[in-house]
Amino acid sequence: MRLKFIEEKIAKGFMIIASLAVFAFVVNIIYTIFRRGIPALNWAMISQIPAGGYYNGGGGGILNAIVGSLYIVLCSTILGLLISIPVVFYLNVYLKKDSRLAYIARLAFDVLFGIPSIVYGAFAFTIMIYLGMHTSLGGGILVITLLIIPIFIRSMDEVAQQLPKDLLDSTYALGATKLETIKVVLRQIAPGIATATLLSVGRAIGDAAGVMFTAGFTDSIPTSLNQPAATLPLSVFFQLSSPNADVQDRAYSAALILIFIVLVISILGRLITNYFSKHKI
C-alpha cells in the first residue's frame, strides 16, 4: 500500500527534474552565447558591411547578412502566406471533410514539412543550374518559401479544422458563396495565421542549409533579385570557421544578434496574436 505512494513521489521527482532540464538547457544556451557574444559586440557590427579583410580580422560589420536575412525572410513570408492561405481555405471550405484530395494533400504537406532544408537546397540548386541561374537573393527566397509553406499550411490547417460548422453555416445562410466566406474564415483563424507566421519566420531566419547553395554569400547588400545575398546563419558559420580568434568572437556576437532578432520577432508575434484574437468567437 505504501509502495505506490513512494513510487508516485519518485516518479514526480523525475518529472520535475526533466522539466527543469528543459529550463537548464535554455538558460545554458542563452548564457553561453551571451557570455561569449557580448565582448565583441559593437555598433560597427550591425551598422557596417564587411571591410576588406574582414574575415582575417579586418574592420566592418555584418550589416550585409542582417539585411540579406531580413530581405529573404520578409519576401518569403509574404509569398508563403499568399500561397498557403488559399490552400488552407480550399482544404477546409471547398473540400468536404472526407475528401480524398484533402487527405492526400495533408499527407503531402506533412512529408514536405519533414523534408530537410538541405534537401530543399540541393533540389532547388539543381533546378537553378538547369535554368542557368546563379546563386542569388531570388534563389534564396524561393527555397525559403518552399521550406516555410508546409509550416504555414500545417499550423494554419490545425486551427482551420477547428472552425465551427455553425459559423460557416451562418455565413452560407446569408447567401454567401464559398469564396465569400473567406472574410469570416480569415478573421476566425487570424490568431492561427499569426502563430504560423511566427513559426515560419523563426524557421526562415535561422535556416542555413537551404540558403547555402541558393542565396550564396557576399559582402555587399544586394540591390536586385539576381545578386547573391548574405544571410546571418551563414555569416555566423563562416566567421566561426575562421582560424582567427577575433573573427570567431565576432561569430558569437553575430549569433547573439541572431538570437536577439528571433526573440524580438517572437515577442512581437505574441502581441500581434493577442490583438488578432479579439474578434474570435
Partner: peptide, 19 residues
Amino acid sequence: TDIRKKMGLLSQRPCPLPM
C-alpha cells in the same frame, strides 16, 4: 446562394461572425 439569401437562419447557439 439565391436560395439561401431568401432564407434567414437562426441556429441553436447564437453564432455571431468574428467581427
